[in-house]
Structures are given as structure tokens and as C-alpha cells.
Design a protein around this nucleic acid. Structure first.
Length: 284
DNA sequence: AGGATAGCCTGCGGGC
DNA sequence: TGCCCGCAGGCTATCC
């Protein structure tokens, strides 16, 4: 569920707590949520998970969030479906211990004093943590497979990407190698705003349609970020707060309800194995 | 090699 | 009340 606006909101809310902090220790409660690049972790998994390092910055590419250490070490945290990455002040869990599905905990300090914890939880474990020896390795081995970031996509770039595939537009938009950051929710919202049928062939969009679609993608994502992300089920930001973007959805989750533009009943069907909601009249 | 498909995993809501 | 089933969905592996 966390798509680009949710991940960007997590990045922004974590930044002041985490950037500049030193990782005093790392607790890995569930090792199989972590993947270590070959050679990384030879000197211990905590070290690969930034133990002893200082967090320099948090970066985002599509739906992926990276913690970059001052010495070059790099981690990617992917929230998958149900993951959360939160900052929690204080030294540790209160009575009752750690909540379930707490997989990784980074203890932070500033100027030698404890400064809270960064906590990764993920009940369904579609997400995870990937460790790289350097930010360059992260980019070349992982982020190079991603398409351009969706929040800054322009019509010409989008058209070039879509022109290479004969798939339906909806599955193409969900392919992170085509465009990075859209998930099922914002893909439906963008197609609705652009007035494009989700079953239209990706390579059938002309320049005008690509321009309209790129603009719609940027608009829904920017509005999502402004609303602090969408809180469906588990999502919370880096401070544990819920977002409001879900209140703005025009088609997602509204199958059978009237179209907000023309009033006709919204259609819901599985397209590319994903539930898709659209207006057959507005998206011709 | 692009594209379709299965599988991963847990929580929750609906139906009986 | 309680159980079972289906669904949710990002991504990887696998097959065609």
C-alpha cells in the first residue's frame, strides 16, 4: 500500500530525527527480512546495517527509501504492503515489550546521548531491508532497474517509456521499471484524471494523452504528499501519524458508487490481476 | 526477451 | 461465537 506519497512522507518526517544521528547499535530480530549484498556483512550484520555509523541523509527512489551513512554504507528500506518505519523517542518499548512484527531496531544517539530509535515493522513481510557497501553500489545494482521517478515525470519521457510496451496501460504504470513510484491506488487515480481507459494499450497513447497522463500522475502524487499520504490499513508516517490522502480518492475503493464527474456507476474489475476501478464514460 | 503467472505473508471482514 | 474463506497488494522467481 505505501506508494510514492507515503514513502516520501515517511522520508520527510524521519529526516529531522535521523539525519546526523549516530547508530549506536542495531537489533535484528528477524534476519530473513534483510538481504546483504555479496561481501557486505562479512564483518557482521550489525555493521552492514549501519551500526557505528552516522546517518547522513535519507533518499527516496520510487517507493524505496535509503539511509545513507557518512562513511558510504547504504541501506534500502522497502515498506512493501504493510511495512512501517518509525522514529520512537525514548530508550525502548515500555511494559509489554516490543510490538509484534518488529524486525529491525536502530538505536540512535547524538553527541553521545541516547536519541531515540528507528523501528522497522512489517507484519506481512513483503518489505525488507537491503544492505549495500556504498551508495554507488545501491544505485548501480538496484536503483538502475527503476524507471524515472513518477513525481517528476513529463509527457515526453513517459511517452518514450510507454511506447516500448504493448501491454495495457494499467499494468505498465505499475511496472517500476517503466515508472517508479505508482501503486494500484494512485495508478487508478491518475488514469481517471487523465480520462484514459486502463485497458488501453500503452503504446497507443499519443503525445497529448501522454502529456495529460504525466500531468495527472504528478498531480495525484503531489496532492498525496501534501495530505501526508493515505492511511489505509497500516500506514503511518515516521512519527506514527496517519495521513489524509485517502479522503481525496475519486475512484480507488469506490467501485459501484457514482462517478464524481458524470454520476454513472464506477466499474470495478481485475485488470492484470489487480483490482481496478474506473468510469467507463469518462475514461473512454 | 517481453509478458503473463504463481507465490510470498498476515490481518480482516463477510458469510454461514 | 467462531471458523473458514477470500481478498488486499509490491515484488521476485519462474515459465512460456
Amino acid at each position: 500500500m505505501p506508494e510514492l506519497p507515503e514513502v516520501e512522507t515517511v522520508r520527510r518526517t524521519l529526516q529531522p530525527h535521523v539525519a546526523g544521528a549516530r547508530v549506536s547499535s542495531v537489533r535484528l530480530a528477524r534476519a530473513d527480512v534483510c538481504v546483504f549484498e555479496a561481501g557486505v556483512g562479512r564483518s557482521g550484520r550489525p555493521a552492514a546495517l549501519l551500526a557505528g555509523g552516522r546517518v547522513e541523509s535519507l533518499e527516496r527512489a520510487g517507493k524505496q527509501l535509503a539511509l545513507l551513512a557518512h562513511d558510504g554504507r547504504a541501506l534500502v528500506v522497502h515498506l512493501g504492503m504493510s511495512g512501517s518505519l518509525r522514529f520512537e523517542p525514548g530508550p525502548g518499548p515500555g511494559s509489554g515489550g516490543e510490538p509484534p512484527h518488529t524486525h529491525v531496531v536502530w538505536s540512535l544517539e547524538r553527541e553521545g546521548a541516547p536519541a531515540g530509535r528507528l523501528v522497522f515493522r512489517d507484519p506481512r513481510r513483503f518489505g525488507g531491508v537491503w544492505a549495500y557497501g556504498s551508495a554507488e553500489r545501491l544505485r548501480s545494482a538496484r536503483w538502475s532497474a527503476l524507471g524515472p521517478d513518477a513525481i517528476t515525470i513529463d509527457g515526453a519521457t513517459l511517452g518514450a517509456r510507454l511506447g516500448r510496451t504493448r501491454r495495457w496501460i494499467k499494468p505498465a504504470l505499475l511496472d517500476q521499471g517503466v515508472l517508479a513510484g505508482l501503486g494500484n491506488i494512485y495508478a487508478d487515480e491518475a488514469l481517471f484524471r487523465a480520462g484514459i481507459d486502463p485497458r488501453r494499450r500503452a503504446d497507443s497513447l499519443d503525445a497529448g494523452a501522454c502529456e495529460a497522463l504525466a500531468g495527472a500522475i504528478r498531480a495525484v502524487l503531489e496532492e498525496g504528499v501534501l495530505a501526508g499520504g493515505a492511511s489505509l490499513r497500516d500506514y503511518v508516517d515516521g512519527n506514527g501519524r496517519r495521513g489524509r490522502s485517502q479522503e481525496r480518492f475519486r475512484v480507488y475503493g469506490r467501485g459501484g458508487e457514482p462517478c464524481v464527474v458524470c454520476g454513472s456507476e464506477l466499474c470495478s474489475a481485475s485488470i492484470g490481476q489487480r483490482t481496478t476501478v474506473w468510469c467507463v464514460r469518462c475514461q473512454a
